[in-house]
Design a protein around this nucleic acid. Structure first.
Length: 258
DNA sequence: GCGACAG
DNA sequence: ATCTTGTCGC
């Protein structure tokens, strides 16, 4: 497997090249409403209204087959306004730290399709199942996708990618003590002092936090503020729905799955 | 060398 | 990611 090492080396170079275009601060034409609601319909300034969620589901029989999903909701009503699913064939294997090389082609395909068919409701922000800058080289799937599609993105992970001395066990321990109420969040500060992301308590029932990180063109602070408002359950609605729909699609079409 | 390792 | 039953709680 000398092959694999060479591939990683190339991928690392590609990540570093794309990272040159990464923007970690708020860089969008819209404004975050004080509270999602009818004010999103207001005239004048553009307000955040359309938020997308993306995910892939797999079948255990064949690791190259997956169903990709893009769900867009209206933040004001939380209603789904767009949904697209596609069975895809994945060329690359999953290698920790290189998830984007396996999943981004399928996700980019869905984005391109929507951009041409329904540009008027194309998401102003995308929540991606995975990490943004909370990554060994600071360039996870959400950042990778954000840069390639030039769309603001956020990384939403259900488990911690241990980087810079951060350990899931330790983070969960302090989260249990510090995150007391729904919406409480804490910075994920590495040994180096760098803030990689945030651990957010989604609901009062969820003791286990969800890990949010900047993907592209949005600050961590703004991202957490938005994610906080979109959580009915542990995972924010856009991503939860994309996960649910893709899994359901595989099940209904006989592929297997629970 | 050892342990870690998003989905 | 996926494999899985029961079970605690509103």
């Amino acid at each position: 497997m000398e092959e694999k090492a060479a591939k990683k080396k190339l991928w690392i170079q590609e990540q570093q090249a794309l990272k040159q275009r990464l923007v970690c601060s708020d860089s969008f034409p819209w404004v975050v409403p004080e509270k999602f609601g009818y004010d999103c319909e207001g005239k004048g300034e553009i307000k955040l209204k359309y938020i997308g969620g993306m995910d892939l589901s797999f079948v255990k029989e064949d690791e190259t087959v997956a169903c990709s999903a893009l769900v867009v909701i209206d933040a004001a009503t939380m209603a789904t306004v767009y949904e697209d699913l596609e069975i895809v064939s994945l060329d690359m294997p999953y290698i920790p730290g290189f998830l984007a090389f396996r999943e981004s082609p399928a996700l980019l395909s869905l984005l391109a399709r929507m951009k041409s068919s329904r540009p008027e409701i194309f998401p102003q922000l995308l929540m991606v199942d995975g990490n943004g800058v909370l990554h060994p080289r600071g360039f996870g799937l959400a950042s990778h996708l954000g840069v390639l599609a030039d769309v603001p993105t956020l990384g939403i992970a259900k488990s911690l990618f241990e980087v810079d001395g951060l350990s899931e066990r330790e983070v969960k321990r302090s989260a249990r003590n510090s995150l007391l109420r729904a919406g409480d969040a804490m910075d994920l500060v590495g040994r180096s002092g760098k803030v990689w992301g945030s651990a957010l308590r989604s609901t009062g029932e969820c003791v286990n936090p969800v890990f949010v990180s900047t993907g592209h063109r949005i600050s961590l602070e703004t991202g957490v503020e938005i994610v906080r408002k979109l959580c009915k359950f542990r995972v924010p609605e856009p991503v939860r729905l994309a996960d649910k729909k893709s899994r359901e699609y595989l099940r209904v079409n006989g592929y297997t799955k629970s």
